[in-house]
């Protein structure tokens, strides 16, 4: 099974990383979306496990979280879905959720199952460097990557975070929460340079990327682009008919990233 870093080993070394919320609008659609996105050129997929109070998300993904939970999705049902996906598709995947979802399930149990069902990593936006050990102890024990995030406010913290990072480094492009933005003003190139000075590890940029131009621009300055809210918006608009529309969008974005 491929690992997280394999996502950054295609022809130009750049990864397109889409995010979707599991169970939005249903787990069946989520499964179909994974196949469609893998087929359309995604290199790594972030599977969101919904949380009741996602404090790092803007309104679009908040709504997806709420709707998915109202639909009855649970961590165990998502694990079952991943097992089904792994019979058909080996694209690298990481879970993206909040500390309490993992902690309350039992951190070791959560990580162990994640590994067993074929997940490659875990992103927890409310776990900064200072708190990562209680999670990374287990991700390292079972061999999945706990992805570290850096932000425009990180400054001198970037070196410390990068040195201890696994898989890839998630560069948060802007202040604020997730959501589409008209432009990204942060000096991404400078952030990536600081990471690379500390460790030879891929960097992917997320938060605010919604079109092929920005995706290509971010991929030029780093090793990949992460897109969430723009995809969730398409799912919200087309509901159960969203799969071909998401496929089309992901193909366009992935092509832009792969020719950056």
């Amino acid at each position: 099974m491929a690992g997280v870093t394999d996502a950054f080993k295609n022809k130009n070394g750049k990864a397109f990383i889409p995010f979707i919320t599991s169970g939005y609008p249903s787990l069946d659609i989520t499964e179909q979306l994974v196949y469609a996105m893998a087929d359309a050129g995604a290199d790594l997929i972030e599977l969101g496990i919904p949380f009741s109070d996602p404090t790092a998300e803007g309104p679009v993904i908040q709504e997806a979280n709420t709707k998915a939970l109202e639909g009855g999705v649970t961590t165990d049902k998502i694990f079952e879905m991943v097992k089904r996906i792994r019979k058909n598709c080996d694209i690298p995947m990481v879970f993206m959720t909040y500390a309490n979802v993992v902690f309350h399930y039992g951190t070791e149990k959560f990580v162990k199952i994640s590994k067993e069902i074929g997940m490659q990593g875990l992103i927890l936006p409310d776990v900064p460097f200072e708190e990562k050990e209680e999670f990374s102890t287990y991700t390292r024990k079972y061999g999945i990557d706990l992805i570290s995030l850096i932000a425009p406010t990180s400054h001198d913290r970037i070196r410390t975070i990068a040195k201890d990072a696994d898989g890839f480094v998630y560069c948060v492009s802007s202040l604020g929460v997730t959501g589409t933005r008209s432009k990204i003003t942060t000096d991404i190139g400078a952030m990536v340079k600081l990471v690379k000075e500390a460790k030879d590890i891929p960097c992917a940029v997320g938060f605010g990327i919604s079109n092929p131009q920005t995706a290509a621009d971010m991929a030029k300055k780093s090793d990949g682009a992460i897109v969430g809210s723009a995809i969730i918006k398409i799912i919200t608009k087309y509901g159960n008919d969203c799969v071909p529309k998401v496929r089309e969008f992901v193909k366009e974005m992935a092509d832009a990233v792969h020719s950056a």
């Binding site: 900064p128 200072e130 708190e131 932000a151 406010t153 990180s154 400054h155 913290r157 948060v172 202040l175």
Partner: peptide
Amino acid sequence: GGQYIPETLMNA
């Protein structure tokens, strides 16, 4: 206790 917050807020 602790500091379970997004990286964006850590320096703050």
